[in-house]
């Protein structure tokens, strides 16, 4: 188990290397001039040229990459051109918010997905199955930003039940220990902060979760249907086990394997998918940082956020692979 994780971590190094190179080259090829962007509008051409050579932008591309790589290896990922702060700091400030949102959304998606999958499976062969199946198809075709807007309209505007901007009420002090707001609220023992943070999380997490749940429903149901054709299910029935026990103890663990793969992929997508939802809910996460950076052609930020996504996806994949080995004994070495 540990060996597998270690091996995965090792393979991650060259992947990260390749991704960083691709990011670097792609961003430098773009027709934007970071030197000009970082100077006030009144700067002269000569001043901009001086800035360009100071930033090293006049050197060959590979050399620039080498410089960047060397600095990155020393923990310096550069300064934001627009915000004039180290990008590492900026990402570190916003990443916890996005992770909090993604995890919450994944919890919603898993709960809805597993519940829905089981419900759909329970309806197999009945007349209601068709209706339930159509309903999942409809849900599947609604994108997350539509849910986001719909929820703002219903719960935020019509019912005025839940807040829909930011992470916390403006009147409350924001504890800053780990950056994970829910955790920090617990650490400082402020119930009102915790409550407010949770309330702010409900709508974006629900919008994202609802959009990611239908595929889980589908996959769980179809793998359950497959598993129920297997001999060991019949043999379990022939031993007189109850249907509930057969489902929980025998079928679910087998059917969970394909679902787990899907959820791993989805979790990776969630970090990208959260972008629109973050913008809609003015949620101060990685997505908003990215959108602002793109708008301002803030290349160091874009590069750093891209790398962060890459690390996150690799980490999730490793985690899923590990879980797979735990759940599927055939992958374990004797």
């Amino acid at each position: 188990m540990l060996l597998i994780l270690a091996r995965r971590a090792l393979t991650a190094v060259p992947i990260l290397f390749v991704v960083s190179l691709m990011l670097f080259v792609a961003l430098r090829v773009l027709p934007v001039d970071p030197a000009a962007m970082s100077m006030p509008p009144s700067a002269t051409l000569a001043e901009i040229d001086a800035m360009r050579s100071q930033m090293g932008l006049d050197r060959p591309l590979l050399e620039q990459y080498g410089i960047w790589l060397n600095q990155a290896a020393h923990g310096d990922f550069g300064q934001s051109l627009h915000l004039r702060r180290p990008v590492l700091r900026l990402v570190a400030d916003t990443l916890p918010a996005t992770i909090e949102l993604a995890v919450a959304a994944m919890l919603v998606a898993s709960a809805l997905g597993v519940g829905g999958g089981l419900a759909l499976f329970a309806l197999r062969g009945r007349r209601a199955e068709l209706a339930a199946e159509s309903a999942t198809t409809v849900l599947m075709s609604v994108p997350e930003f539509l849910w986001a807007l719909l929820f703002i309209f219903v719960f935020g505007v019509l019912l005025q039940a839940l807040p829909f901007t930011g992470r916390l009420d403006a009147s409350l002090p924001r504890p800053d220990i780990t950056g994970f707001l829910l955790l920090d609220a617990v650490l400082v023992g402020r119930v009102d902060v915790l409550w407010s943070a949770l309330a702010h999380l409900v709508l974006p997490a629900a919008a994202l979760g609802l959009a990611f749940a239908p595929p889980i429903v589908r996959v769980l149901r179809s793998s359950l249907l497959d598993v129920y054709h297997d001999d060991y299910i019949r043999q379990a029935r022939l031993r007189g086990l109850s249907e509930g026990r057969i489902l929980c103890r025998h079928a679910l663990k087998n059917a969970a394997l394909p679902m787990l793969t899907l959820m791993g992929v989805q979790f990776g997508f969630l970090f990208g998918g959260s972008l629109l939802v973050e913008v809609i809910y003015s949620y101060p996460g990685l997505g908003n940082l990215m959108v602002d950076a793109v708008r301002n052609a803030d290349l160091p930020i874009i590069q750093m956020v891209g790398l962060t996504y890459c690390v996150l996806v690799l980490a999730i994949n490793t985690l899923v692979d590990g879980l797979y080995v735990v759940l599927n004994p055939k992958l374990r070495r004797r």
């Binding site: 001999d231 060991y232 019949r234 043999q235 379990a236 025998h250 663990k253 087998n254 004994p329």
Partner: peptide, 8 residues
């Protein structure tokens, strides 16, 4: 195939 593959 008559024994559950994921249980000992």
């Amino acid at each position: 195939t008559a024994l559950n593959p994921v249980l000992t």
